[in-house]
Design a protein around this nucleic acid. Structure first.
Length: 601
DNA sequence: TCGTGACGCACC
DNA sequence: AAACGGTGCGTCACGA
């Protein structure tokens, strides 16, 4: 048994490090005394919870003044005591609970469903107080930044410095120190214990700072996080043979393209500088410049040159694409999969300033959609099919509900084609109307519309004017939001969420409102699915879409049920869904008929 | 050898 | 007067 003293702004705190089973008596007394509420945290060998080599090393429990660190790595009675404690505590404060709950689920066998209902996640509180990141003028959501802002900057620095110093001492990197450091190293134990003390203090500090309007969101965001953590635990089955084949093919394509590029004077197609030099050596003039004044060599330029017959441009495009597809997607899937061949995404259910989610691990939000080959890597469970259900023009319907624009609402009620209406108002093609609708909601002007729709700026101006004439109350709504934002620095969504709006970019208020409210539509749908027993079938949420793996023998029924549960009326505007059973792989939804016939299981 | 900024590119 | 919102990630180039 060891005890470490530390001071936070002069106040003494103590960290008890359990070493022997006899030490557990003191720990049990501590738990009994604080059964009502404890903070908790864990230290693992890494963030890859589902990999075969990942281990749980420490579990820590704390109060604002005291922490106990249990070396669960030793197993036996230590692990058993932690299990009992996790189950017995009435309320648990955790910073980013999704991570720890999955760790305990995987390594201790305590199901995350059992623990989520009693968790208070300080990261959730922090986001509801200020969703901005550190580089956006906010505090960010990291424990370190929150400690510096709300508790004590010196403590934050010292806690952070501990592990950096340990890594240096052990001549290793910050990423590797977690698995190498002795489980009873004083600095490691101090660091581990401090985190729970800080989380316990943060909970007290942050809870009263959540705006009254956002209080109901506390429960709701914990439930959304729970549903997402179940999806993470489920994982998405990888078609290993297909992925290996695709990887090999991409490697061959990249190699071939690189050889051509090298023959034409460019050794590294990934280096914009080298490509620019090689192109100029061939007599190409590069007029575009980046923000920092460098020669701009992007896909637009390269495609144009390739279209004119430039072989180097073509080779560079091919080499870059094959390399990116292999390294960013396929090889990453193969590296990430667990021993059952499943990939576990990491879903940050409350991420952006607008509360939009982000997904890493499987970067599901950014997989190519124009080509099925990458998504084809992911398949339904045995005996299942993939169902994909998305909302129909979610953001525009949300805009109709929010702005109360009579004509937009009437158009949706009548089942009219909003993109066509916008197009007709300016007598342009439907595609131009569609691009304008989206770009307008993104806060774009004539220049942006011209860019995305591929029309001259003069035409873009006309289409925007047509949009505003078609839906006169939308522009008024945008202005009202801008005024509110200018007055108080933030706007409040229908769910009570505060969205800070930078005064220099007041025009983005409309987009923030629509994006955030749409996110909440999807989240409510996810919660209905989760509470309706669909948790085991859910795979990924992607903005306005949910992907699921459902038993094949009732897949059509299942997809329709999912669509039903997700659909909702918002202030009289129906936000409906398009359920689709794609096939045995996710990619099947992006194939044509002929391709589907070639890909059978 | 590491961390970081710039760039480009994938998506809704 | 006009205003492109929100993400993740790989590579290169550079400085500590």
């Amino acid at each position: 048994m060891k005890h470490y003293q530390y001071r936070i702004k002069g106040e003494p705190v103590v960290i008890h490090a359990v070493e022997h089973t006899e030490d557990l008596d003191g720990f049990r007394t501590f738990v009994r005394r604080n059964l009502k509420c404890l903070s908790a945290d864990s230290e693992t060998t890494g963030l890859d919870t589902y990999s075969a080599t990942n281990r749980l090393r420490l579990v820590q429990f704390g109060t604002p003044a005291e922490a106990w660190v249990i070396p669960v790595e030793h197993g036996g009675e230590f692990a058993e005591d932690v299990r009992r404690t996790l189950r017995a505590v009435k309320r648990m404060v955790i910073h980013n609970a999704s991570f720890d709950l999955q760790v305990w689920d995987r390594h201790l066998g305590v199901r995350l469903e059992e623990l989520w209902p009693k968790v208070l996640d300080t990261k959730v509180l922090s986001h509801l107080i200020d969703p901005r990141g550190q580089d956006e003028g906010g505090t960010g959501q990291s424990l370190e930044a929150l400690t510096a802002r709300y508790i004590d900057s010196q403590t934050a620095d010292e806690a952070k410095g501990l592990m950096t110093r340990l890594a240096k001492e052990h001549k290793t990197t910050k990423n590797r120190i977690w698995s190498l450091i002795d489980v009873d190293h004083p600095d490691y134990v101090l660091y581990a214990g401090m985190d729970t003390i800080l989380a316990a203090r943060l909970a007290r500090m942050l809870a009263p700072l959540v705006p009254v309007s956002a209080r109901p969101l506390i429960r709701y965001e914990h439930e959304v996080a729970e549903a997402c953590s179940v999806m993470e635990r489920n994982g998405f089955l990888l078609d290993v043979d297909y992925a290996l084949g695709l990887s090999a093919r991409l490697q061959g394509e990249e190699q071939a393209a690189r050889e051509i590029a090298a023959g034409l004077g460019c050794d590294n197609a990934n280096s914009t500088e080298q490509v620019a030099n090689a192109l100029e050596a061939r007599g190409v003039t590069i007029s575009g410049r980046t923000e920092k004044g460098k020669r701009k060599v992007d896909k637009v330029l390269l495609e144009r040159l390739a279209g004119q017959g430039d072989e180097l441009a073509r080779a560079v495009i091919d080499a870059k694409k094959a390399a990116k597809w292999r390294s960013t997607w396929v090889d990453k899937f193969l590296a990430n999969m667990d021993s059952d061949g499943r990939c576990h995404a990491s879903i940050n259910s409350l991420r952006a300033r607008t509360a939009r989610m982000s997904i890493t691990g499987i970067p599901a939000q950014t997989l190519p959609s124009g080509d099925w080959k990458i998504r084809r890597c992911f398949v339904a469970d045995v005996g299942h099919l993939i169902a994909s259900v998305d909302y129909q023009t979610q953001e525009l319907r949300v805009l109709a509900a929010l702005s109360k624009d009579r004509r937009m609402r009437a158009a949706f009620a009548a089942g009219a084609d909003l993109h066509q209406i916008t197009a007709d108002a300016a007598e342009v093609a439907r595609g131009v109307g569609k691009a304008t609708n989206f770009t307008y909601v993104y806060g774009g002007g004539a220049k942006a519309v011209a860019e995305t729709a591929g029309v001259p700026v003069a035409v873009a101006r006309k289409v925007i004017a047509g949009f505003e004439k078609s839906y006169p109350q939308v522009a008024g709504y945008s202005l009202r939001l801008q005024h509110i934002a200018a007055r108080q620095g933030y706007i409040t969504t229908p769910t009570g969420r505060r969205l800070p709006v930078d005064r220099s970019r007041a025009y983005s208020a409309l987009n923030y409102m629509v994006q955030s409210t749409s996110r909440d539509v999807t989240c409510r749908g996810i919660l209905r699915l989760y509470k309706g027993g669909y948790g085991p079938y859910l795979r990924l949420p992607i903005h306005d879409e949910v992907v699921a793996s459902i038993p094949a023998h009732k897949s059509a029924w299942g997809a329709a049920e999912i669509g039903h549960l997700m659909a909702e009326d918002m202030d009289g505007v129906h936000i409906g869904t398009d359920p689709e059973v794609t096939g045995f792989s996710w990619g099947h939804g992006y194939m044509d008929e002929e391709e589907r016939l070639l890909h059978v299981r």
